[in-house]
Design a protein around this nucleic acid. Structure first.
Length: 479
RNA sequence: CGGGGCGUGGCGCAGUCCGGCUAGCGCGCUUGCAUGGGGUGCAAGAGGUCCCGGGUUCAAUUCCCGGCGCCCCGACCA
């Protein structure tokens, strides 16, 4: 419960984050190292994320299915880069039913292999394409260093896997799903993101091209918040995913995969939260508004609850996700702090004075104190609440965007670059070489985050080596 | 895997250096009374293998040896 204040965000961002996740009851540490329990409030947030994404997946023609948690070890070994990338972080099952298994099974770290195997059975003809399947599930990666939501041994996500007849179509699919992620992030989570392409060193093991939506957290560190890969024919060749084209020629498919995980909850916390606690974007918040009735005797209680119950019914009917806080053992002030910590966007206070004046008091979570407070008529409350929720949603996006943009620097030379990366990102020309990328990482701990898909025409000189460069890239320290 | 730190009621810690009596404190929890528009007050309670194993000793939470676990930094890492 809300006993003590959080460590202020600017004193120790990491500590603030950990305390907040625990105190807001989003998640808790599990009895297994590096694992977490997602608690009901956190899972409700995830369910809203799922719903917003799943709707978009369906709208773009995808269907859901479920594949096994366990994958034969040999499957992972069929794609060379894939196995090299993932083998250090695999959990392997060697015993089943008391017997040593002939072939070890791995707990899926991602499902390209087993889904690829199934696709090879299901796809025969060009008429079977494209295959557009998504899976909601969990995966395990044996990470050495973990943090609640951002990186845990087991995490929940969705992984989309598609197979296409042509390279062009698969590349389009990759970018289309990246757009879906960006649309979700911006319009549902109020998380501004940059769509871009990962460098060779940063890309997914087994992909031809990886794309990302990259977001800046409240401490200016970067977070890869969703990712979409063009896999070329790498997995199609490893698993013989083939079809006969219209001229009766056997062809390999072109495949993609794309994923977004519970890590995104971490992004929401770290982007919008403040010293008081969480600030959840209204469109995803499990509770959009909380009603706090205020009274000190039975007579006042009866009058206040009559108005509170009427308001509750009206808002409920309007589709607002709503909570009535009827606890009698804590004071109104305690409830204010409690719900602020949990990030509820709007608080509705109803007391004897409101009953008298036919009003209610509204307090916006995104604006502290008096600035966010207003007294509105009881009549037409649902309309007022809907308008405020939508204003809060817009204000969160605007604030996060302004913060990000003010922390993206444009260094003039390498010295300025290293300086800029102490506190923020840099957007600079880059020749594309691994050497220059590695040097920046060595000197500043910052990696290339992405080469934005949308960037102005032109050429410049690499910020590191000074050679001709055709693309600009974002550098930043990441989670 | 390298460096550092820490394991004591549910949580956060003190005590241990220099062994000894009933192991304390804050928060939380239970009950009662008062309170109630910004983290409410008072009172009475419940709750402990002092991480585990071994050794030294009349006596170990405390000293010694071994083990396990967790956290931070680094390396690694979608």
């Amino acid at each position: 419960m809300a006993d003590e204040k959080l460590t202020p965000r600017n004193v120790d961002f990491s500590e603030w984050y950990n305390q907040l996740v625990l105190k807001a009851e989003l998640a808790d540490y599990a009895p297994v190292r590096g694992c977490m329990v997602v608690r009901p409030y956190g899972w409700a947030l995830w369910e809203n994320i799922q719903a917003a994404l799943d709707r978009r997946f369906k709208d773009t023609g995808h269907v859901n299915a479920a594949f096994p948690l366990l994958i034969p070890k040999s499957f992972l070994e069929k794609e060379k880069e894939h196995v090299e990338g993932f083998s250090p972080e695999l959990a392997v099952v060697t015993i089943g039913g008391g017997e040593t298994l002939e072939e070890p099974l791995i707990v899926r770290p991602t499902s390209e292999t087993i889904i690829g195997y199934m696709y090879s059975k299901w796809i025969q003809s060009w008429r079977d394409l494209p295959v557009l399947i998504n899976q909601w599930g969990n995966v395990v990666r044996w990470e050495l260093r973990t943090k609640l939501f951002l990186r845990t041994l087991e995490f929940y996500w969705q992984e989309g896997h598609t197979a296409h007849a042509t390279e062009q179509e698969a590349r389009q699919e990759t970018l289309r799903m990246l757009d879906v992620y960006a649309d979700f992030a911006v319009n549902e989570a109020a998380v501004p993101v940059i769509k871009g392409i990962k460098s060779e060193t940063e890309k997914f093991a087994g992909a031809v091209m990886s794309t990302t939506i990259e977001a800046m957290m409240g401490d200016t560190r970067a977070l890869q918040s969703g990712t979409s890969h063009f896999l070329g024919q790498n997995f199609a060749k490893a698993f013989e995913i083939q079809y006969l084209d219209t001229s009766n020629t056997l062809q390999f498919c072109w495949t993609t995969s794309w994923g977004l995980s519970t890590r995104f909850i971490g992004a929401i916390i770290m982007i919008h939260g403040d010293d008081q606690g969480l600030i959840l974007p209204p469109r995803l918040a499990p509770i959009q508004a909380v009603i706090v009735p205020i009274y000190k005797n039975d007579a006042e209680k009866a009058a206040v609850m009559a108005v509170a119950n009427k308001s509750f019914a009206e808002l409920r009917a309007a589709g607002i996700r709503l909570k009535m806080d009827e606890r009698e053992e804590v004071t109104p002030g305690f409830k204010y702090n409690d719900w602020e910590m949990r990030g509820v966007p709007l608080r509705i206070e109803i007391g004897p004075k409101d009953v008298e004046k036919n009003s209610v008091a509204l307090a916006r979570r995104d604006k502290p104190g008096r600035e966010g407070k207003s007294f509105v008529p009881q009549a037409g409350l649902a309309g007022t609440v809907e308008r405020l929720l939508s204003e809060i949603q817009a204000a969160l996006l605007e604030k996060a965007t302004a913060f990000r943009d003010s922390n993206i620097h444009d260094p003039k030379d390498y010295a300025e670059l290293t300086q800029a990366l102490q506190n923020g990102w840099a957007y600079s020309w880059w020749c594309g070489s691994k050497e220059c990328e590695a040097k920046v990482k060595e000197d500043t701990k910052a990696s290339t985050r992405c080469i934005p898909i949308e960037q102005e025409e032109g050429r410049g000189n690499c910020i590191v080596c000074g050679k001709k460069a055709e693309k600009k890239v974002y550098f930043g320290r990441s989670y």
